[in-house]
Design a protein around this nucleic acid. Structure first.
Length: 596
RNA sequence: UGCGGGGUGGAGCAGCGGUAGCUCGUUGGGCUCAUAACCCAAAGGUCAAAGGUUCGAAUCCUUUCCCCGCAACCA
C-alpha cells in the first residue's frame, strides 16, 4: 500500500549564491530520499524555498545597491536555477515573499496569539540610527571591556572568548556602516515555549527511532526552554496581523519564525498550484503521513523542539486548517547532516573559500557531484571536499565501476545482437547473480529507508562489482565465436542486472540513469527533471517555483522486466572521466578568488 | 566556561573487553570486450596523548589536547 511521505528541506538563505556545502547537507540527500520513495510508489510531497527576510538579506541588498526585493529576486533566481540544474525534484520550491506565505504565516501567528501562546515583552535592543532597524549582536563591534581587544563583537570577544552583551562594549559601532548604535527599549511578541515543555518532552520521549544524540540533545534543550522573540524592529518581513501592529512599518515577524512556517505554507501553495486547494491536508492532517526534515546539524533543535511547539500550538486551528481534520503533523524524523569543509578549511564566502554550485555545474556534471556528495559527503561527520578526491572518486568509482559496467555490457550486446538477446537455459551461477542483484532492492532500499545514503550507494556499487566480475569470468566477447547462445545468455543476464542497478542508482544519479534507461531500449521517464514554472497569485502578483511531474514513472523499486528482443539504442559512455590536471586548475582558480 | 558529538593505515568507515578489519586508493604481476573491469600478491596503523581498572583495552574509568555544533536575538 502506498505510503504518504512529506519531505521538508531546509530553506536556503538569499544573501548570496549557494556553495557546495549547502547542497551537500540537505539538498542532494533529500532528493535521493524523495526519488527513492517515488520509485517505491509512495505518495511524496517535497517542499522548500528561499528564505528571503531578515537582516542579512538587507545588508546584502545594501552592499549591492539594490532594494531588498531586487536582491532577493536575484538570488532566488540563481539558487532555484542551481537546484534545478542539480536535478533536485521539489514538488514546490517557492519563496517566503509570496502572498500565500504571508497569509499562512499570519494565520499561524494570529492563531497562536488567540490561543494565548504569545507573550508581549519589552527588551533592550540595539538599533542602527540611520535606518531604525534592529542591529543583531553580531553586527555590532567595539572594544572589549575585559581584554581591550578593539574588534570584539557584540555577542562575544574573539580575542579573550568571553561572552558579552553589546551594551558593554566600549565605543560600540555598527559593522554595517560604522555608526554608533542606539540602545532602547522595544516591545515584542515572544513565543511561550515553556508552555510546550511538557507535551514536547512526552512526544520526544516516544521517538525511539531518532538517533540517540538527536533525542537526548533535544530533551536536554527542552529542560531549559525560554520564551523566544518572534517579532523584530525591522521593515523587511511579514507584517504582524494585530490591531495597532499591522500598519507599523518598523515591526515585522522575526525571520526564523516566518521561514520555518514555510514547510506548511509551501504545501498549501502546492495544493493551489495543482488546482486541488485542499490537497495539502493529505500530507499535513493524515496521521499516517510521515514527515522527514533534512537540514544541517546546526538546525536540529529548531526542528525537534521549536517548530513542533509552533505546530502543537496551531493544532488544527486558524483560517487555513479551519478547525477541520487532525492537528498538523509533527516531524517523524529529522535527518541532519554534518558540515563540509573545502580543502581543509571552512567554507567562507568572504575569504573566497567556496565553490558555488552554478560555477561547479558549468564545468562538471550534476551526477558527478551528486555521486561524490552521497559517497563522501558529510553524512555522519564533517568531511573535507578536495578536488583530488573528487577526481579520484569520479574516475575510479563512478566511471570505472558503474559507468564501465553499464557501458561494456551495452556495447557488447549492441554490437553483437542489437537487441536484448534471447537467453538459453540459465546456469546456477547466472541465477545466483540475478537473485543477488535483485535482492539489492531490499538491501539498498533498507539503507535508503533509514537515510543511510553512503551505505546504500556502497551496496549498489558492490553489486555492480559482482556483475563486472561475472562478465570477466564468462567472457561473452570470446563465447560469441564458439557458442552464440551462451554468449547471448551471459549478456542477457548482465543486461538484466544492469537494468536492476539502473533503478538502484536512479535516486543518486538521475540524469545518467535516465539515459541508460533509454539505451536499454525502454521508453518513458524514470528520473523526472524539475522545471521552473510561473505562479500567479490571487493578488495578481507572480513568482517562479521549481516543480515537476514526478508521479508517472516508467519504473518501480523492483526488478524490472527486460524483454528479449527489445531493441537497444546505440550507447554512449554515461559519465565523463576527469583529467587529473583539473585539480591544480581548480586550486588556482580558488586562490585567484582570494582563498589562501 | 557549560551541554552534546567526534578524533582508528593516504581517504571514507567498521569494531566497542580477547593483541585491528572493510571499501577505495598505492606498489608489483596476470588478463583485456570496455571510459579497463577482473584475478593474484604486497606495502601501509604504537586505534589523538597520558595515567588507571583487568590475566588481557580502540573497546571500561580518569585527566589532557584537537575538531565541530548548541548554549549566544544566527537563520
Amino acid at each position: 500500500m502506498p505510503e504518504r511521505i512529506f519531505v521538508a528541506v531546509a530553506w536556503p538563505y538569499t544573501n548570496g549564491p549557494r556553495h557546495l556545502g549547502h547542497v551537500a547537507g540537505f539538498g542532494v540527500p533529500s532528493d535521493v530520499f524523495a526519488r527513492y520513495h517515488r520509485l517505491k510508489g509512495n505518495d511524496v510531497l517535497m517542499v522548500s524555498g528561499t528564505d528571503e527576510h531578515g537582516t542579512p538579506n538587507l545588508i546584502q541588498a545594501d552592499a549591492e545597491g539594490l532594494t531588498p526585493k531586487e536582491a532577493v529576486d536575484k538570488y532566488n533566481r540563481i539558487i532555484s536555477e542551481d537546484l534545478r540544474a542539480l536535478g533536485l525534484s521539489y514538488d514546490c520550491f517557492t519563496r517566503t515573499t509570496t502572498r500565500n506565505h504571508t497569509t499562512v504565516v499570519q494565520d499561524v501567528f494570529k492563531t497562536l496569539f488567540d490561543k494565548g501562546y504569545l507573550i508581549k515583552k519589552t527588551a533592550l535592543g540595539a538599533f542602527q540610527e540611520s535606518t531604525g532597524r534592529t542591529l543583531p549582536d553580531r553586527y555590532i563591534e567595539g572594544t572589549c571591556p575585559i581584554c581591550g581587544f578593539p574588534s570584539a563583537r557584540g555577542d562575544q570577544c574573539d580575542n579573550c572568548g568571553n561572552q558579552l552583551d553589546p551594551e558593554q562594549l566600549i565605543n560600540p559601532r555598527s559593522r554595517i556602516d560604522g555608526t554608533r548604535p542606539i540602545f532602547k527599549e522595544s516591545e515584542h511578541f515572544y513565543l511561550d515555549l515553556p508552555a510546550f515543555a511538557e507535551p514536547l518532552t512526552r512526544w520526544i520521549s516516544r521517538q525511539s527511532h531518532w538517533r540517540p544524540n538527536v533525542r537526548n540533545f533535544s530533551l536536554n534543550y527542552i529542560a531549559n526552554l525560554k520564551p523566544r522573540a518572534i517579532t523584530r524592529d525591522i521593515d523587511w518581513g511579514v507584517p504582524i496581523p494585530l490591531p495597532g501592529w499591522e500598519d507599523r512599518p518598523d515591526k515585522r515577524m522575526y525571520v526564523w519564525f516566518d521561514a520555518v512556517i514555510g514547510y506548511f505554507s509551501a504545501a498549501v501553495e502546492w495544493a493551489k498550484m495543482i488546482d486541488r486547494p485542499e490537497a495539502w491536508r493529505d500530507f499535513w492532517q493524515d496521521p499516517a503521513c510521515r514527515h522527514f526534515y533534512f537540514m544541517g546539524k546546526d538546525n536540529i533543535v529548531f526542528h525537534t523542539t521549536i517548530w513542533p511547539a509552533i505546530l502543537l500550538g496551531y493544532g488544527n486551528g486558524g483560517k487555513i486548517a479551519g478547525g477541520r481534520g487532525e492537528p498538523l503533523q509533527l516531524p517523524y524524523n529529522v535527518v541532519s547532516s554534518e558540515f563540509l569543509t573545502m580543502e581543509g578549511r571552512k567554507f567562507s564566502t568572504s575569504r573566497g573559500v567556496a565553490v558555488y554550485v552554478n560555477d561547479f555545474l558549468s564545468r562538471y556534471d550534476a551526477d558527478a557531484l551528486r555521486f561524490y556528495l552521497m559517497l563522501a559527503g558529510p553524512e555522519t561527520q564533517d568531511t573535507d571536499f578536495t578536488w583530488a578526491d573528487f577526481v579520484r572518486r569520479n574516475n575510479d568509482e563512478l566511471v570505472a565501476t558503474w559507468g564501465n559496467l553499464a557501458h561494456r555490457t551495452l556495447v557488447n550486446a549492441f554490437r553483437r545482437f542489437g537487441e536484448v538477446p534471447r537467453p538459453g537455459p540459465l546456469t546456477a551461477e547466472d541465477t545466483i547473480l540475478v537473485e543477488t542483484v535483485d535482492h539489492g532492492f531490499t538491501s539498498v532500499g533498507e539503507h535508503l529507508e533509514a537515510a543511510r545514503f553512503r551505505a546504500a550507494l556502497q551496496e549498489a556499487l558492490h553489486l555492480a562489482a559482482l556483475v563486472n566480475q561475472y562478465l570477466t569470468t564468462n567472457e561473452p566477447w570470446k563465447l560469441i565465436a564458439t557458442d552464440r547462445e551462451r554468449a547471448g545468455t551471459v549478456l542477457y543476464v548482465a543486461l538484466r542486472c544492469v537494468d536492476d542497478l539502473k533503478l538502484m542508482f536512479t535516486p543518486f544519479v538521475p540524469f545518467s540513469s535516465q539515459k541508460l534507461h533509454e539505451y536499454l531500449g525502454h521508453d518513458g521517464v524514470i528520473a523526472a527533471a524539475p522545471e521552473r514554472r510561473t505562479v500567479r497569485e490571487e493578488d495578481a502578483s507572480t513568482h517562479e517555483v521549481l516543480t515537476g511531474d514526478y508521479r508517472r514513472l516508467a519504473g518501480t523499486w523492483a526488478p524490472p522486466k527486460l524483454e528479449p528482443g527489445q531493441k537497444l539504442r546505440e550507447p554512449q559512455p554515461l559519465f565523463k572521466k576527469l583529467d587529473p590536471s583539473i585539480v591544480l586548475e581548480e586550486l588556482r582558480r580558488m586562490e585567484e578568488h582570494g582563498g589562501k
